[in-house]
């Protein structure tokens, strides 16, 4: 049962990552601007992060959906969510009004203040799902189960 729940967690979290990455991938400039809008990173670092995030999100999402190195992918996923939550919380605390740029977009957004809580809640839920996958280790219908099938009896070390 837990392993089926793990499958659901993988599909939901991975699906969100793939979508978020795919929406941002075609427009690297907007992606860089969205990172800049947080006003947390020096310009050149923001640029690198803006280029890096979309492909990273897609690969992490694919790994989760396929169940490929699930644990590792879930760790990366959890770390990213922590970073995003910190980022959104920090703009909120600084009273800035920006679109989180989570799914494309980014920059100034007059209605940002009302969306911060919901964005943080969403990321926190996905963070939980990622942590669950790290803890669970194995889930159903995962490529891991094919790749790392045991060929010996599980005795001893």
């Amino acid at each position: 049962m837990r392993q089926w729940l793990g499958l659901v967690a993988r599909l939901v979290t991975g699906g969100v990552w793939i979508y978020a990455g795919a929406v941002k991938l075609p427009d690297p400039y907007a992606s860089v601007q969205a990172v800049r809008a947080y006003e947390l990173l020096p310009s050149s670092v923001a640029e690198a992060v803006g280029y890096l995030l979309p492909p990273l999100e897609i690969v992490v999402g694919l790994a989760l959906v396929l169940g490929l190195l699930t644990r590792g992918a879930a760790v990366v996923s959890a770390v990213l969510f922590v970073v995003f939550i910190v980022g959104i919380a920090s703009v909120w605390a600084r009273g800035m009004e920006i679109d989180c740029g989570c799914f494309g977009g980014g920059g100034f957004d007059p209605d940002a203040r009302s969306s911060y809580p919901w964005e943080i809640a969403r990321d926190a839920a996905l963070l939980l799902a990622s942590c669950y996958l790290v803890w669970l280790r194995r889930s159903r219908l995962a490529l891991d189960n094919l790749l790392f099938r045991r060929t010996t009896s599980p005795t001893g070390g």
Partner: peptide
């Protein structure tokens, strides 16, 4: 993808 992105900017 990173380098494609960087060069397309």
């Amino acid at each position: 993808l990173f380098f494609i992105n960087a060069s397309r900017d």
